[in-house]
Computed example of a mutant assay.
Amino acid sequence: MRHLVIVGLVVTGCASNQPDGSMNAVDALGADAVREVCTTRITYGTSWLRPATHPGQVDVADGAVTWDGTCVADGANSYAVLSNGWKPYFTGTSGCAIAIDATAGCGTPVACTTRVTYGDAWLAPATHPEHHDDIAGRVFWNGACRAAGSDSAAELSNGWAPHFAGSDACALAFRWQGCGGLYANPVVPTDCADPGVVRDGDRYVMSCTSGGAADAFPLYTSTDLVT
């Protein structure tokens, strides 16, 4: 849902076109005075250690929140430090995976990019100055770490195959920015033939046929077509 904030201005000497002599709010404030509130939607990957009291995989934070992609090992787990001080934990020594999506109120929208941060065992090319890569679009990894001689390699969805020193040493953290969050298929884990979707206010409603089942036309609701 989009939120609006009205920025007050002091206006003098303006003619009014209202019957009672008052100024129309939009005329007085101007189009630039109506702006969307800046919030950041933070979606955590499946390895996130979700608190027992947390209802889902998403948080919405006030203001613009960023993360540089650094994943800090902490015993058998790891954590990311977000710019607002939050410290989400993940299973695995380099398991951080976060999608960050800011509203238009935070400034110019960014194009969808994936930052892949490599673990300490990464065999970096001699000409590669950073310990990460920024890639246009969405890039994923299925978690498989194959043997490559005495070393190991990960196969990314864009065809890249970063190598790591030692066997089963693949360690990668992922930050998706401006990509619209995360989801895992199937969104509906049942047969859902002939689906139809309509938008009702701030939510979507979907129905489908299910043969001769008692609930022949189940209804599903979602705010983002994913959860």
Rank of each mutant, 00 (worst) to 15 (best):
C170T: 04
D168L: 06
D194W: 06
F164S: 00
V198N: 12
W176E: 04
D202W: 13
A193D: 11
F174G: 00
V188W: 14
Q177D: 12
C170W: 03
D168W: 03
D202H: 13
G196M: 05
G181W: 03
L182R: 11
P189S: 07
F174A: 01
R203W: 07
F174E: 00
Q177H: 13
R175Y: 06
A193V: 04
R203L: 07
P195K: 04
V187A: 10
C179E: 07
D194F: 04
D168S: 13
G196R: 13
A173E: 00
P189M: 04
A184C: 10
L172Q: 01
W176S: 05
V197F: 03
A173D: 02
R203Y: 10
A173W: 03
V197H: 10
N185V: 13
C170K: 02
D202M: 10
Q177I: 11
Y183D: 04
G201N: 07
D202Q: 14
S167Q: 13
D194Q: 12
D200W: 13
V197T: 14
G201L: 03
L182E: 02
P186V: 09
Y204P: 01
G201R: 09
C179Q: 10
D191I: 12
G196N: 11
V188L: 15
D200Y: 12
R175T: 15
A184H: 15
C179L: 13
G180E: 07
D202N: 15
P186E: 07
F174H: 04
F164V: 02
L182T: 08
Y183L: 09
V197S: 11
G181T: 10
L182D: 01
N185G: 09
C192T: 11
A193Q: 14
A171H: 02
D194G: 03
A193H: 11
P186D: 06
G178T: 13
D168V: 05
N185S: 15
L172V: 09
G201C: 04
Y183K: 11
G166T: 03
G181K: 08
G181V: 08
R199E: 10
V197A: 11
A193F: 04
D200F: 12
C192H: 12
F164N: 00
C192P: 03
P189G: 03
C179I: 11
L182G: 02
G180L: 08
P186Y: 11
A169T: 01
V198M: 09
T190K: 13
R203S: 09
V197R: 12
P195G: 02
A165T: 12
G178A: 14
F164G: 00
S167I: 06
A165I: 09
G178M: 14
R199L: 02
A173P: 05
